[in-house]
Design a binder for these strands. Structure first.
Lengths: 646, 646
DNA sequence: CAACCAGGTCACAAGGTCAT
DNA sequence: ATGACCTTGTGACCTGGTTG
């Protein structure tokens, strides 16, 4: 499912986005996006995409509770704190209790850096950090992170973002300075209070100087190893090769080799996973390449663009309507009961609600409210913004996820209403079984269980940040995939250049989703229905950090709902929305316009037919386009704000 | 003229500006405006100062520290001392004897933090520190209060003045020490004597250790969250953004409630340049308050909003058309030759060009290229972005000005094509006489000398930053004023609540201007005509830092031009644009919608009449609304980007 | 040149001290 | 025990030198 998403990614942007993340926990999961590898003495974080959202940073808040009081507590969470004080072994949460700096990564998909490797020139181990490596990511923008082909190199000592190759090793500014001071002044550090084997990570690197220095030496830092001047080309190439190899290896190992070729056909094509920046644009989608049924008529104006507009088509308006409606129906799973499809918009909404309730019982993902011992991936600013914690067990989790990135109109999906952090509440129905790995989404076909609003806004403090992000992220993936699928089936869409297809999707997916999920927002009652079946009222959500986006979404939903569109109308409108997406950056605007015109004509036709005495419906719908644009931008803004102060 | 501008203000920009200021003495005055908000891990007391206008961009916070110390001594009040423990009551001046640490503040205008808020993260408490003593300063003598761009950060735990970012949170020395001891010695505090929910404030923070520690944890203090070294620029930016957001929110809320007072004299024309914060908020518009001619018909849906929609009007469609057209004509000076009005769109464009040329000779404002000795208001990051200066005498001036502020859709006008920095070129025709004070704009009526594109993109390095800003700002003022004037004359607009009028203007002015000035962008030749009469080609501008906004503007202009609208159509379209502005935050959406409907009907009527065989014109126009929205957002984005890395 | 690193700088924070 | 002040590091940036 990631497939399409990836396609849509722009590496650069991704980078930008990820960079905003703060550190913290890292999780490694290939499918999600950032990849970390060691190469040539450095660890690399490969930034891909879908995961942008991160949870920010550090874990504090309540999590610290435990860490202090019982520092030795081996809670899976709060890895760092325990590292220094308590049982050293407890440092990493989850699987590997080794001293690896990047240990933690709760998810099963993760691969830690093997301890055995750390002393060596590593060769390319791929890991993928998802939501957070923020530390990492956070540094990049202005920071001097050393990037290599879009990959961020990590400090071999502590795992922070490397600023370069210092004293023979990729290291961060901190470790560089530390090492420099150490050797310059020949400092003899105080003896380690523990067993001289503290793990050195970004978070705790300052707790034991002796161990830090030892680590510096052990990874190979040396005054003799300095390399001046620019990196020799050969070395660069070697690194590149190593990384690619590593990447491939990892991909293969992570997803059974062949099984996924099927499910994720576009995977390889996905720029996100490959040297991001340049390729993106030229990336090939499988969005394209099929046959089209309809082409758009009457290219309105002469085009100076290279690509000729699609040839006028002879497909009838009715065909367009039929095709688009079918496409909509068949690519909007959430819309339907497992077995039947309803035609009426009202039923549709109702169906969704029912559906939601239905799903709750079985496959829903919940986040329950456990003891607040979990490490909190939220940065202090995060907590801060939340403002008031409402009780003892409050932990501010961020809840946002970006599915894709685009230039300015992000298609990222975030829960605009909760991403600023959530307070928690007790929830009774918990299905702890549904962890990330147990995520019930089966590849080929979404099983009606996931929708962007699928999760409860409340979060299980027992879950690691990355886990939560992953889940949230995952919950959007199918919906986005569906949009892509829908786009592909819009007659004429495939005739657009790949580049334009991608751009339209980048710019429009969020808007399409807003339309598709409008019915989840009950404007009258001011509630949002999550897949859990629970409705949450706006104020509740607002108190958890909901932005104005939520309000706007409500308004939009209300107005859209008031139009009482039929499925056909909804389908065409959705198509129009997509094709009307922001045009900045399109290659061939005229083609897109022509297609848009076709679709709009069809939409008008159908609307005139269905609402003969409500002449304004069509106009109103068109006005909605502008509203959607605003929504989209609001979303981008909130996302930005979030990224900036995660 | 300022009047209107003010009206439109929201604090964001202002804030942006204020943030740049370095501290100094502060004064607390509630009504006036200091704002406290939470950001990052700290609570911030915003210091607004009239001096803000100065140095818009550059000044770095770092410098601020020093100034602080010196200033502190002289302050009349030094409340701090009393604060700590002793006479609790005595500490606060005036009214509430509450425990607010920020009590005293000599000035009577001061308002302490409300007790009711104390327990929680105070959110957005307004205080305004102006020039004199501040509680904060109280602490100053020697005390290390952390300031951020003139803002004083407060301890997240107790509200005292923060001394820095300790354990991941902005905290005071007391809480820092307390937390350190707590974790170092792993102290188990005695159980709270009450219900373990003591409020922790400066005054009482020592009463219950357990609760204090708990509070520390809850706000996010953690050993894992420590941050060493200097504050990354990125983080500073982030905070800035957060503050802006907080500010905006606050402003809006304040604005909403109190907004209705008297009109301000225009003196302080551009809000951006004037004592921003306080006045703005309470600003009153004269937008309102007059009589209206037409009201909107058929309030479509029931409204839950307080204000009833304007009563249906009996004004005919023709009246609407006539009125709006007249309004447009009479409020769009630039549009016309001094004495005559042209009706045809083509002539209109031509007229503008001529006009431009004509004006050049007399009243245009130029910026010549002098020695680069002027102070450069651009921050280094700015320079950074620009990358390469192109010569010795190059100074990177920013060229942007915000005329108004709004929530997300800034109406700020910026020269999207040059604000990222400009290289300079020599210009021969300089009219040094036109300085800020000699600004040739006479109040009542713009004299055809200023339009948003009036200035050359090149800037005189001899002018001080503020001067340039002022000038640039001024150049937009008349155009914006015209839009406001136009709005007032749209039948029914005045019937909207003041709040909504303001919000529509905030959100829509930029869009209206885009429509009005579309003809300045020649899409075919890819040139922009400045008021100087000079045309600059896109590439030229781009090389100077033009963003994609410029491209989009071109595209938009081209498409709009292609529709060949008559003046009537243009007028109505403009009205529709304004009334269709982003609705987030409107009080009474239904009224606005009703008005919109009226206008759209009129627009359709006139279009159908004029373009009987181009049925799609109307639809195309509606689609333009969405494009405008994107343009607006793009503009906001670039503006934001600019603000963040000025 | 421009990429790239050692080393310097200094804003900042942890932790220690000691009068209260 | 508290917290204002002090000492010791830390690390983000910058500068200047080195190399391809």
């Amino acid at each position: 499912m990631t497939t399409h998403l990836k396609i849509l990614d722009g590496g650069a942007e991704v980078l930008g986005q990820n960079l905003q993340l703060n550190d913290g926990v890292q999780k490694v999961n290939f499918s999600a996006g950032v990849v970390e590898c060691q190469v040539d003495g450095g660890v690399i974080a490969y930034i891909s995409s879908s995961s942008s959202a991160s949870s920010p940073s550090s874990c504090h808040s309540d999590s610290s509770n435990s860490s202090f009081q019982s520092s030795s507590s081996s809670l899976p969470s709060s890895p760092s704190s325990s590292a220094s004080e308590g049982s050293s072994g407890g440092s990493s949460c989850g699987s590997a209790g080794n001293g690896s700096s990047r240990s933690d990564f709760s998810s099963g998909t993760f691969t830690t850096i093997d301890e055995s490797q750390k002393n060596q020139q590593v060769d390319t181990l791929c890991i993928k950090t998802t939501y957070t490596s923020a530390a990492i990511l956070a540094k990049a923008p202005g920071g001097v992170s050393t990037k290599f082909n879009g990959m961020i190199l990590l400090c071999k000592v502590c795992g922070d973002v490397a600023s370069g190759f210092h004293y023979g090793v990729h290291a961060c500014e901190g470790c560089k300075g530390f090492f420099r001071r150490s050797i310059q002044q020949n400092i003899q550090y105080k003896k380690c209070l523990k067993n001289e084997s503290c793990s050195i990570m970004r978070m705790n690197r300052n707790r034991c100087q002796q161990c830090r220095f030892k680590k510096c030496l052990s990874v190979g830092m040396s005054r003799d190893a300095v390399r001046f001047g620019r990196i020799p080309k050969r070395e660069k190439q070697r690194m590149l090769l190593e990384m690619q190899t590593a990447m491939k290896t990892m991909m293969n190992s992570q997803f059974g080799s062949s099984a996924h070729q099927e499910a994720l056909p576009d995977y390889q094509a996905s720029p996100a996973l490959l040297p991001p920046m340049p390729p993106i644009v030229n990336e090939k989608l499988d969005v394209i390449g099929q046959n089209n049924q309809v082409k758009s008529p009457t290219p309105p104006a002469p085009s100076s663009h290279p690509l000729p507009p699609p040839a006028p088509s002879d497909v009838s308006k009715e065909d367009v309507i039929g095709t688009v409606t079918r496409a909509h129906r068949e690519t909007f799973m959430y819309n339907q009961e497992p077995s039947e499809i309803r035609n009426d918009a009202n039923h549709l909404m109702e169906g969704r609600m029912n559906n939601v309730k239905h799903l709750t019982k079985s496959n829903n993902i919940h986040f329950n409210n456990g003891p607040s011992t979990a490490r909190c991936p939220v940065s202090e600013s995060q907590n801060y913004i939340n403002g008031q914690h409402r009780g003892k067990n409050t932990a501010g989790y961020s809840n946002i996820h970006s599915v894709q990135y685009s230039n300015h109109h992000h298609t990222n999906i975030s829960s605009g209403f909760s991403h600023k952090g959530c307070s928690q509440r007790s929830m009774s129905d918990v299905s702890p079984a549904h962890r990330m790995n147990g995520y019930p989404c089966n590849r080929g076909r979404r099983m009606h269980l996931v929708c962007p609003m699928s999760m409860s806004p409340f979060i299980d403090p027992n879950k690691s940040g990355p886990q939560i992000w992953e889940e949230f992220s995952m919950s959007f993936t199918p919906a986005v995939k569906e949009v892509v699928e829908f786009a592909k089936r819009i007659p004429g869409f495939k005739d657009l250049s790949q580049y334009d297809q991608v751009n339209l999707l980048k710019a429009g997916t969020f808007e399409v989703l807003m339309v598709r999920f409008a019915s989840l927002f009950d404007a009258k009652e001011r509630t949002v229905t999550f897949l859990s079946g629970k409705k949450f009222c706006v104020d509740e959500l607002r108190s958890m950090g909901a932005g104005e986006l939520l309000n706007s979404v409500f308004d939009f939903s209300e107005k859209l709902g008031a139009l009482q569109l039929s499925e056909e109308e909804m389908s065409l409108f959705t198509a129009v929305v997509l094709v009307s997406a922001d045009r900045s950056g399109l290659e061939n605007v005229n083609s897109v316009e022509a297609l848009q015109e076709t679709l709009i004509r069809a939409l008008r036709t159908i609307i005139m037919k269905n609402h003969p005495n409500e002449a304004s419906t069509f106009t109103r719908l068109l006005l909605k386009l502008a509203d959607l644009r605003s929504l989209n931008n609001l979303h981008s803004d909130e996302l930005l704000a979030f990224k900036i102060h995660p």
